[in-house]
Amino acid sequence: MHLIEVKDLEKTYYIDSVQTPALRGVSFKIKEGEFVAIVGPSGSGKSTLLHVLGFLDRHTAGEYHFDGKTINDYSEEEIARVRNKEMGFIFQTFNLLPRTTVLENVKLPLLYSGVKESLWEKKARQVIDSVGLSHRLHHESSQLSGGEIQRVAIARALVNNPRIIFADEPTGNLDSKSGKVIMELIQKLNNDGHTVILITHETYTAKHAERLIRLSDGAIKEDAPVDHRLVAADHFTK
């Protein structure tokens, strides 16, 4: 069974009487452990697709099964639980709560997880360590660089050990060097068994994935394995 099964998926935004079709019948399947990049020009529906896949938004037609279930099988609380336990999110901007330390930001999913409080500190420190930010535990987001913020976001996405990580342009605001660090981390967590869906408009970044889905105007133009897959340089040290 596939972790993600999408069939004829459509998403149309309705604002007043204006309809904006953002996804016009998209179909694909993603296996557990895959690393898929979704690329396409601006406005092609990449973020929309990611929001639907991440249970952050609902589709308007077609089918989407995550782990065999559709969003309609879940109550609001169960959706929140799935987002908390099974999914991790890394956004392009506003990943961290302002005036809140790295440690507290990473603990955030644990607050809503039902995990015993006594384990929070250890788990949070562990993932912060895995993104190499142990020396920034008590910094607030305003005291971090863009690359560091994204690494904190990765740590937070990982803290509940989810099955799938959604990343929407995680390197969009970074220079190439910091971008590489992020990509290396993402490849690493994929190697650790997490399914990854990465959105990017840079072909170069997309080549870190094993499979590439190209969107254009809300439809899939290409769905193929990545040739000459890039491996982020192993310059990242803890």
Partner: peptide, 16 residues
């Protein structure tokens, strides 16, 4: 709004 959205994205329920 952003804070609320972020909390929800990481698993906060309406009740939370």
């Amino acid at each position: 709004t952003k804070e609320i959205g972020l909390r929800k994205a990481v698993g906060a329920t309406n009740k939370d």
